[in-house]
Design a protein around this nucleic acid. Sequence first.
DNA 1: GACCTTCATGGAAACGATTCCATCATAGTT
DNA 2: AACTATGATGGAATCGTTTCCATGAAGGTC
Lengths: 335, 335
Amino acid sequence: MKVSGHRRITIKDVASAAGVGVATVSRVLSGGSASPETRERVLAAAAQLDYRPSALGRNLRQRRTGGIALLVPDITDTFYGRLAEGVLSCARSAGEPVMVGATGDDPEQEAELIGTFLEQSVDRVIAVPSGDADTWTPALRAGLTVVFAHRRPPGRDDVPAVLADDRLGTRTAVEYLAGLGHRRIAFLGGPGGGPRLRAFRDTLAALGIPGDDELVVTARAARDSAYAAASGLFQHRPDLTAVVAGGNMLGEAAILAARELDLRIPRDVSIVMFDDVPWAELCSPPLTVIAQPAQDIGYRAAELVMRETTRRTRDTVLPTELLVRGSCGPRLGKP
Amino acid sequence: MKVSGHRRITIKDVASAAGVGVATVSRVLSGGSASPETRERVLAAAAQLDYRPSALGRNLRQRRTGGIALLVPDITDTFYGRLAEGVLSCARSAGEPVMVGATGDDPEQEAELIGTFLEQSVDRVIAVPSGDADTWTPALRAGLTVVFAHRRPPGRDDVPAVLADDRLGTRTAVEYLAGLGHRRIAFLGGPGGGPRLRAFRDTLAALGIPGDDELVVTARAARDSAYAAASGLFQHRPDLTAVVAGGNMLGEAAILAARELDLRIPRDVSIVMFDDVPWAELCSPPLTVIAQPAQDIGYRAAELVMRETTRRTRDTVLPTELLVRGSCGPRLGKP
DNA sequence: GACCTTCATGGAAACGATTCCATCATAGTT
DNA sequence: AACTATGATGGAATCGTTTCCATGAAGGTC
């Protein structure tokens, strides 16, 4: 007695319903050659039975899943949310499923997630990497196609990346602040902010403003760490007049910390934040930001990883834009 | 000549390296019985070869993937971001991969994504549903375990859900506003806001405040639709003195629209928003909100869907909390 | 010593697709 | 008419696991 409840309908069922062999069904369904008449019969049978090919069987045979994995530090961060949306929308149009993992900016968790993906025979990964170059060696050796988004581990130049133009973005921001008369400009960075930090220092140097390592602070990924870093910065260096925040969580922390210490924006301190977020306009004053095309980064990365011909591709660098709103003002005379 | 580049290491390799049969290897690795001595040999061989069982083979044989799929309207929305984070963190501790899909609040896309998941033999789905009860019939008939999060399609009471206490949250907010003297209170809702809207009307009725259908507006999921709805509300009904926004995007739209029309908050109009977001404190005035445990909703839903015994479970309802900040004030005399 | 139970073990059959290859019919060429 | 080229077709192998089942050894009981 068969429980006829919900046995999955397989290609065999379709084959016998259409009175043909399984090979023929497979061929028809994947666009191979078949006589018009047979094709008709097969399609009718498939439709009638509501047949859905099992990805499991296909993947095993082809030893690939076609699936895309996405690794971000924190899906809660709107920047990564937008990036993910870009990936999702590109994958959707290709009908491919996307696995998402959050690493918490922890190389160990990242490695673990890569392991999971490898086990699942995922064959394409888009990652905002947290680990170093070695973390990615196993993945590459296993032959999966990797594209980095938003940043890359130092030294992993054999993997293509889709990046915002951090260098120019930072320079524009610093030049803008310098143009307003600021000299004591702080940089509040997060994990993986190397290129921005370098650009920050280079720009200061180019402008003839002496560097000052105490004006550079790096926070860990968490919100409280960002707040602590910002607060410490303001307290230790009351002479600073401007801050460049290297991400929306850092900007948020800077505003909160400034408010806590009764520093008015932009009168007492000017703030430029990386990443345009919806609430930047809601803030008072509205925040001057360096907008990054987060969604586009995700979309391009997905396109790239699906092309599969990623060996030796030049990096894709997308433009940023300084949106001047109200959080920066001229340096007022603190003698 | 073997290209020894990167052929995947299979259970056969381990078996022959350990000098045992494949069945024994499988048994050892999945905790079956084996003599201590054999177990040792197998484990050693597996470790030495860096063997990773292929999920493909296992899944096919077992006709299940163990994977979890997550369906949200918009991964860009921080509420869903936090919800996703909850799901991800629960799944991570179980070592299970998570597929994520964004429906854009479109039943058609939702149905399509469900189809993709079915094809992938996903067997657990957590969804913030957009479609109606029928959209979910195919999924259920195919035997997959579904848990709804945040809301449920009307009439789908056979599927367990993890929800915030919308009813009480709404009531608390409306009572708070009424306590401040407000009588013309508007409700700005989004897709799937049925329960909240009902609670809104019920509470008004209980307080003896006459309902007014023109004070209830429903927007589509997109940002511009939210803005249009909010703006229209303020323009058509200059007599309203308070707004309950049914989500963070709607709250954002309300603030923007109010500002555009030179309505001051809370002097001219009081605003309570569903969902506590980081920027609520950054706003000026800081926003009074009804906080929802978004991450917890996701986590609980994941726990539930992994228990698999979801048939006939009571809904999980999590508490909300009114956080009074500065966006609500007493009704000022407009005679 | 005969018998039964218990246990470790490995061969082989699934799982559901794709794809190689042999077969056969048909049409085209000489 | 014989032969070849072409194209449709289905059987069977394959992918990497798990799991059923048969086998045989070891140990216990009468």
